[in-house]
Nucleic acid binder design. Structure first.
Lengths: 229, 229
DNA sequence: CCAATAGTGTCTATGAGACATTATGGG
DNA sequence: CCCATAATGTCTCATAGACACTATTGG
């Protein structure tokens, strides 16, 4: 293979995930240019020639998604680079997963007439531009998997939260119900997951729930598995 | 961000892993050009403008590593794209992990005077060019982690193997000893992992070991965890 | 009081790990 | 016979899950 200039373009595409009204949701922007005009797409943008990949992802997060980089978890996924995935030319997409608590619908930024969160369960893959349905599938599976082995679920919640809220994160992302009692014991006894506070959440029609904050650990040992059923 | 031509170059870099003399090893090639002349690097090459990323990885696997694509597991890892990771210009590295059984030392291919497998435990990260030490670290952790939740360990072995050989894969990659009896029971009772044959391996100074072949499953349920100790 | 949610206790089944025991080959 | 390795058995402990029970608020 030659070392000649290849004229690749490099883009970052983001799967920005949050819980909206308690439902696992992802941010999509409506394209107002060809190709795929009026289809929905992941927010993305081209990488500057002197810009680190992570910096490009953070920039897109702020400008396209209207999300500040604080309190948002950002992690690189795979790259997608089929030769003809984009009719405009050879564009490599480096994808990232962003997770945040209660992210707002962005005020429609540049390059998109509309932008809003979609519930993952309501999404029709056919409405997505390019190979973004495939990217979305990879991202959702990564998120679901990481809840098993890491403390990542906390990224979906504010600084202080109740065990019920944490359980709702798992239930929404995994799309299954969990036993409240067993979940409470599991979470509070896994070292480094959550840290007990001396405050309580406002009443919700039952016994007030104690507030917790993040523990210091980043991995769950032992893990909290989906599949054991 | 502008849509102008960016003059990125896109490369694939491979972490080719195998067991050599029973030790977890990785293929490195000695560079005979600047930059990093005479340093060791991951085998890699530039992606053709009309070439899929996976096809580029397979091509590098054959030409640089001398490994046919049959019976080699190939999976994409992350991309590495710090702005100044390569002094020659803006080069994005899309990395892949390749696993195979008893891979041979390649006859030194194009662009490298020397190429050989190094035992992972013997490697000094400082001897690696570019950010390849970082890539290696990510790849090794991915391999170690995937042994926990998938049947990937079989990729390190030939078509037919004994349970002891499979255990040696885990012991080498994880760099720890496992109890032979417990491992045997765990592996043979996990559905889809291995399939019993009616043949036996040659004598090794003890009771002959039954031969097994791959089962049909790709994930381990329940997993075989490192950390439980 | 009841309803609702938070949190704990109890029982069972399962699996990991330590370790003993049996099986089967070669000096 | 002894030794080495293969394969199975046994025991203990930890955990998941089902489910009952207690705790604490509001109506």
């Amino acid at each position: 293979m030659t070392n000649a200039v290849q004229n690749f373009q490099v883009a970052v595409d983001l799967t920005v995930m949050t819980l909206r009204d308690g439902d696992f949701s992802i941010l999509l922007v409506k394209r107002d240019d060809e190709p795929f005009k009026d289809a929905w797409a992941l927010p993305g943008g081209f990488v500057g020639i002197d810009e680190d990949l992570l910096a490009a992802a953070q920039r897109v997060l702020e400008t396209e998604a209207g999300v500040g980089r604080d309190h948002v978890y950002l992690e690189q996924l795979r790259s997608f680079g089929r030769a003809h995935r984009d009719p405009r030319g050879r564009i490599i997409s480096i994808t990232f997963m962003a997770l945040g608590a209660n992210l707002p619908d962005p005020t429609s930024g540049d390059g998109a007439t509309d932008a809003r969160f979609w519930k993952v369960n309501d999404l029709d893959p056919a409405m997505l531009a390019f190979d973004h349905a495939h990217i979305l599938e990879v991202a959702v599976e990564r998120a679901r998997s990481k809840l098993e082995y890491t403390t990542l679920a906390r990224s979906f919640l504010p600084e202080e939260f109740t065990i019920s809220q944490l359980r709702h994160v798992y239930e929404s992302v995994w799309n299954r119900k969990l036993d409240p009692g067993n979940f409470h014991r599991k979470v509070t006894r896994t070292p480094g997951f959550v840290q007990e506070l001396d405050r309580y959440a406002g009443a919700t029609g039952g016994r007030p729930a104690r507030l917790f904050t993040s523990g210091t650990g980043s991995t769950l040992n032992p893990p909290l598995l989906r599949s054991t059923q």
